[in-house]
């Protein structure tokens, strides 16, 4: 029983982390309907930037944290500016393919600079953040994840539902031409959503780096893990991303614990296919309104 509970808690906390990583992904999808294959690389960028600032440049923690976020924000902004802007108005598949190319570019350049070795951060989280109930324990990192994740969830929810900028972003995702005709600054919307997405991705990169260490292959692998997570929750639902993340996390932990660790990476996809057959737009996704 204790084993089960510990697995459950592990799964929940890893799942929450997946959800957090997926949030930025959903952000981009919500505003521009783009599947971002470079998301894992954005996560990796955040993790490496923090590594450089915190461990190598020896800046103070809060400062390097803020600088990392700012750097990621700028990167997202620049990526949109340089690579995605020329493609406004082109079919989505091109944009998606572009992100595939970007992923290869980023991964290549990170490997070029840092190599494929594992780097680690200094241990800086105070141990009192860890929680323990009986034999089940929660590591400090996961507590931090929980707090950050919840905060962003609420923030984004409010932003998209009520703020004008949020509504503009949704309108662009919905019908780009119509939004353009009404003078919505489509480019600004894209730039903003990429910037915010990169920021969130960078943050989850830092958290992931604390847990597993910093390694390009692992971090960009998380980018792929994000797919079942967001699809499960519904591509355009930020809350769904968190819940999808938790489901995947728990599933992985339980399969890893009870069946076999090698099945761990495949099981999310198998479950995903079955859930999609029942709910084709994910658990919380918007049902497409089609009129011929």
């Amino acid at each position: 029983m204790d084993f089960f509970l510990q697995l459950l808690v592990n799964g929940l906390s890893i799942g929450f982390l997946y959800g957090l990583s997926a949030m930025g992904f959903v952000m981009i999808f919500k505003s521009s309907s783009v599947l971002n294959f470079a998301h894992g690389e954005l996560i990796a960028f955040g993790a490496y930037l923090f590594l450089v600032l915190c461990s190598w440049a020896q800046l103070s923690l809060p400062l390097s944290f803020l600088l990392t976020l700012a750097g990621c924000f700028l990167l997202g902004f620049a990526v949109e500016r340089v690579f995605l802007r020329p493609l406004i108005g082109e079919p989505l598949i091109f944009v998606i393919m572009l992100t595939v190319g970007l992923a290869a570019m980023f991964k290549g350049s990170i490997l070029l600079v840092f190599g494929g070795n594992l780097h680690t951060y200094p241990d800086f989280l105070p141990p009192w953040l860890g929680l323990t109930w009986g034999s089940v324990s929660l590591q400090p990192v996961y507590t931090v994840t929980l707090i950050i994740g919840t905060a962003f969830l609420i923030l984004f929810g409010l932003f998209f539902k009520f703020s004008s900028q949020g509504i503009y972003m949704r309108s662009v995702a919905d019908n780009q031409r119509a939004a353009l005709s009404l003078g919505v600054h489509v480019k600004r919307v894209f730039a903003l959503s990429w910037a915010i997405a990169a920021l969130v991705a960078g943050m989850s990169g830092i958290v992931l780096g604390i847990i597993n260490g910093v390694n390009v292959h692992d971090l960009s692998g998380i980018g792929l893990k994000v797919f079942p997570v967001v699809i499960l929750g519904g591509l355009d639902s930020i809350g769904g991303a968190i819940i999808g993340g938790i489901i995947i996390g728990v599933l992985e932990a339980l399969t890893g614990g009870y069946i076999s660790p090698s099945l761990k990476d495949v099981i999310p996809y198998i479950v995903l296919v079955f859930i999609l057959m029942v709910k084709p737009y994910g658990l919380f996704g918007q049902v497409e309104i089609e009129r011929v």
Binding site: D174, R177, A178, S181, L182
Partner: peptide, 25 residues
């Protein structure tokens, strides 16, 4: 402001949210 041919609403936004997009400029 141009009103496009063939009525292009923002399908997933509510009517009022649609109207709010009009304030973009």
């Amino acid at each position: 402001i141009q009103v496009l041919e063939g009525r292009q609403p923002f399908k997933y936004l509510t009517v009022e949210e649609n109207l709010r997009v009009g304030t973009a400029i």
